[in-house]
Structures are given as C-alpha cells and as structure tokens.
Design a protein around this nucleic acid. Sequence first.
DNA 1: GAAAATTCAGAACACGTTTTCCTGGACGAA
DNA 2: TTCGTCCAGGAAAACGTGTTCTGAATTTTC
Lengths: 332, 332
Amino acid sequence: MASPLRSQPRITDVAALAGVSTSTASKALNDTGQLREETRERVRRAAEQLGFTPDSRGRALSSGRSFTVGLITTDSSGRFSIPIMLGAEDALSAGEMALVLCDTRDDPLREQHYLKSLVSRRVDGIIVTGRRTEPRAPIDVPIPVVYAFSPSTDPDDTSVIVDDHGGAASAVRHLQSLGRSKIAHVTGPDSHHSAQVRAAATVEAAGDAFAGEPLHGEWSERWGRHAVDVLLRAHPAVDAIACGSDQIARGVCDRLRELGRSVPDDIAVTGYDNWSVMALASRPPLTTVDMELEELGRRTANLLLDAIAGSAHHGPMELPTRLITRESTLGT
Amino acid sequence: MASPLRSQPRITDVAALAGVSTSTASKALNDTGQLREETRERVRRAAEQLGFTPDSRGRALSSGRSFTVGLITTDSSGRFSIPIMLGAEDALSAGEMALVLCDTRDDPLREQHYLKSLVSRRVDGIIVTGRRTEPRAPIDVPIPVVYAFSPSTDPDDTSVIVDDHGGAASAVRHLQSLGRSKIAHVTGPDSHHSAQVRAAATVEAAGDAFAGEPLHGEWSERWGRHAVDVLLRAHPAVDAIACGSDQIARGVCDRLRELGRSVPDDIAVTGYDNWSVMALASRPPLTTVDMELEELGRRTANLLLDAIAGSAHHGPMELPTRLITRESTLGT
DNA sequence: GAAAATTCAGAACACGTTTTCCTGGACGAA
DNA sequence: TTCGTCCAGGAAAACGTGTTCTGAATTTTC
C-alpha cells in the first residue's frame, strides 16, 4: 500500500542515514561488537525511521544457516499429519525458524523432487511424517532428519512415535477400573500396524477379561455398526467394547442404541484418536485415547533443533498418550 | 563451527573439476551464454560427479527473488484452510516455489510476528486465508498478496472466494428438478456471513417453494437433529431440507430416520461442504455442495504468481461450486 | 610526560550465485 | 596484410549480511 515497487531499504541505507559504516550498523542492530551506546541508539533510530527489516537471505548466506526446516508429509488428507505439522510449526516459529511444506501425495517421484528442492534451499533440517504408523524407508540427505509418527526403518535414525501399546492398555485399564470384565475389541485392518499393536495391547492388558478375538475390519462407522451384530451373536454377555478408532466407536454406539442397549450402562465403549468431530458428535460422547499429536509435533521439532545444534538423539522415542474420559464409559 | 558433515560442493568446485571458471560453469548449468557443447557437457559431468546442487540462497540473493511464498492462515483446526493450502502448495511446487506455513491461531500478535518474518525472508508473495467467509482486514506489506476464502475488506485487493450464492442456489434447483415444492432451510448462526448468504440464496432460488423461514442455529449435528423437530411441527408437509452444512444435514438425516421419515422418499436432504467424513458416513450419503477448495487454492496460487510476474488481478474473484449428488436426494 | 591499555569504528573479506563486460583468438573479406 | 566479426570463455561486480582484522583516538598507568 505504502510504496508499491520500491525495494526494501538495505543495511547500507541505515548506515548512511546514521552516518556510520555498514559493519557498525550491523553490530549496532545485532548487539554485538564494541560500540558506544549512543551510536547503537543512533543506528537503531535510523533503522526504525527507514522501516528497515534485515534481509534474511544475506544473513542465511553469511551464517551458513537458512533458518528453515522442511516438512515432508505423504498424507494429503491430513487426518494425522495436520496436528503434527501445527505443533512443529509452533515450536519452530518460537525460534525464528520457518517451515516449508512439502506434500508428496505418496508419490516417490514427488518426494525426490521435494528432497532436491529442500537440499537446494540448504534447509537446516527435515521432518518426515506420514499417515500410518508403519516404519518407512529413510531418506538420504546430508541434513539432520527426524521422523514423526511413521518411524524410519533404520533404528539409528531419530524417530518420534506414539506409544500405541500404552494407549490401548490405558483404555482397557480404565474399563476394568469401572468393573467391566468382558471386554471386546473392534478395530481396523489386520494389515495395519497400528491395528495390530492396539489389538495385541488390548488383549494383553485385558487378560482373562478379554472376550473372544479382536475383530478386524475397515476404519469406518459402517464396520463399527456391523461389528456389533457379529460380536453380540458370539458373545452376548460383553460389557465393554474397546475400539481401535473413534469412527468405529461411533458406529458401535449408534448400532447399540438402535438395538436398545444402553451405553455405558449395558456396554461401555471406548474410542481411539480423540478426533473431536467423531468423539464429541457421538451419542454418547466418547471416552477415547488422545495421541497428543500436536505435542508430538512440538517434540519432533525440538529434537530436530537439538540435532541441528549438534547433539542428535538416536533411535525411536515413544511419547505417551492421554486418556480422555467422557460419557461413553462414565455415563452422565 | 565444528561441521560434522562435509559442506555441500559449491559451483567453484564444479568449475575447478571441469577446468573452467565459475562463470562458465554457471552458464553451462543454466543453459545460458555462449559455450561449446563439449564444454557444457564437461561441466555437467563434473556437477554430476560431485553431486552438486546449486545453493538457492545464493541464487535468491543474486536474482532478487526468493522463490518462496508465505501462507498465513488464522485457522488452526484447518477444516477449510487445509485443502486450500494443499492446492496452493501443489500449484506452487510446479514452479519450483516453496511455501512457508504460518498459523496465526487468530492471534494478531502472532500475525504481526509472522508478517515481519516473511518480509524479512523477502518472500515473493503472500497468501492469506481464514476459516470464515467474512471479509478480513488487509495486511500491510510491500509484497504481492492474494486473499483466499476470506476476502480483504479492500475491494481493490485480490481475493479468491467461493460463490456461496450460486452453490446454495444449485442445491435448490436440484431439489426442484426432482419435483420438490416445499423446501426448508436449516443452517448455522445468523451472525455468520456464509450462513446469511446461503440462506438468502436458498430463499431466493426456491421462490414460492420455500417453506417458512430459514432456521439458524449452530454448525452441529445436534442442531440438525433439533431443527427437524422444530421444522416438522411448523411445516409438516415439507418435502425437502436444504442444509447449510454437512454436519447439520447429517443430524437432520439421523433425526428423520428416528422419526420414521424416509430420506429421500418422504423428505430429500442436501448438505454443504462435501466434507467426506460427514457426507459419506451419513445415512443415506449426502447430496452436497463442494466448494472445490483445493482448486481455489490452486487458482489463488496462480493469481499470486501472476501478481509476482507483474500483472496483478484486482478485486474479488468468485469461483463456482460443484453439486455432488448422492442418495439423500436421489435414493438408491 | 611517555608508554601501555582500552575503546570505538571502519576496511576488507566471506558466503554462493548470476550477470555484465571484456579479452584473446580464429576466421573471412577487402 | 589488415580490419572487422564472431565465438568461447574469463574477470569482476552485484546481491545483503556478518565477522574478523586493523588502526586511530582516548584513557589509564607508571
């Protein structure tokens, strides 16, 4: 609005206005070197007057750092990677770092393209994340990398992952603390790592209280509804259903209500993800496991900052989940 | 300054290996200047051998451009801005541009901070987007800006927005083409611009076929369910309900089913947003208006690229919506 | 009062690339 | 032979900043 095409003032302009050399101006603005306070102040005022904002490209070149990190995600829809992204961005922006976004759409070609672009930009570090918890092939760049949510297959790489085992177990312990003793499990495809881990943890934590076998299907409300029919036929006495996702849990609740079974009085239900649009819209609202993905993003970013600073953490790091209790287990 | 990793090769290294000067190397790699093909090839091979990737910081400094654009979003949850973001990123990455993400979380202080940071990075342009369709105050930077979804209050700024009027009207025309003649409207808060526009468009398009008054409430399934009761009490003969969002429409469908009313045989229902997790999970799946936000993001990015190239478009630009027909109006 | 220490600020260079200008040689024409 | 043209490639400057080195002015010390 002010000046349409005039280029930004440079530090030379500030120096000229203040009547000093550019190096003096640089020192004054960065609080380095040996300068009289009076000179510092004069330079500062000149910068203020000109509306000077230092050009970080020059700074990047001179400092050898770009103050930028890349985020590579394979997940276009973003269910899981969005909160991670926002957490990372939050942690990074506190340190004057910018985050450049690269959505590969699961295309290896696009991934290569982005990697090349990030290396070319001399990004200080890279965060790699995906939509599934299965380990993924590491990327090969001469830059610090931290994997989030989907760990690297190389156990020496830095990965920040969710403690899915602990999360599933916490839901079961909660159900048991409420006196439930016939606990079933409805979850996603057997081929999904997260479904496997959560199922195994549920079975293990429930012990004798586990009813039947984990039921695997798709991650959908429809499967949740259908699974209720299957389950009640085989195990009519079930008094709790721990689900592998909030979508499934919502379907389960809907079907139970249609069958006249009360949640949680007859059967308690737990979800997984704390996806608010599912967990809160469900009738009743869902007790569920929050993976704290935004916090995971923050931790990832901080680990990356450590690695950039020279002290890298090696190996996977599991972050705890948080159990959110609502009416689907507690009642009103 | 202990550098554990060997620094990337520079163009001088390539030049030395190829036995030419740096300027020649630059020309060879960029296909500019007058060089023998044999020399070009020699330089290319040297670059290949060293794994040389040009440092875009140097290029940015020299070219005066940063090949980076900033995306400022006020929307942390991301319902609407995520697809816009992905579309923009897609369009930009085709042109070797990177996108840096800034989530202001609706905090003016954070916004100022980010603006300063983007100006400091000498970003080539900025995209501003939000979670609502109400116009927002323009930002004041000496850089091309395009507003997406939430237009600028300055009618001379470049804004890309959704044709909400047309979208709502298209749903009504669809209902009328199916012979529905008593059309109601259930939507979000009266204070929301999008709710107002869609309601006005619905009333106008329906004409004599409009039943009663638009019902305003919150953007939730619960309100959708409640609105059905209100509506059927006042207008029992209603044969279609055009909703202001998919969440509301899903609630409407649920309640109608509970009351034994068939959708769409007794009452047809339309949603708005084509939010797949709502529209597809609804029983029956929803006919709805897709705002084509990813395309909006792409168009925004391209308009920004035009502005950067010097030919700016001024004023708001409305993009058409797309009607997605499903069982909630068509039946099986 | 002279020598040493301290304070302050400027000159020069580095970062990596692109671009403009220039040079030296080959070649053809007068 | 001499002049002009064209070609291939090099030297140097520019982009904007940060840092290191150097030198002068001032103060302190003996």
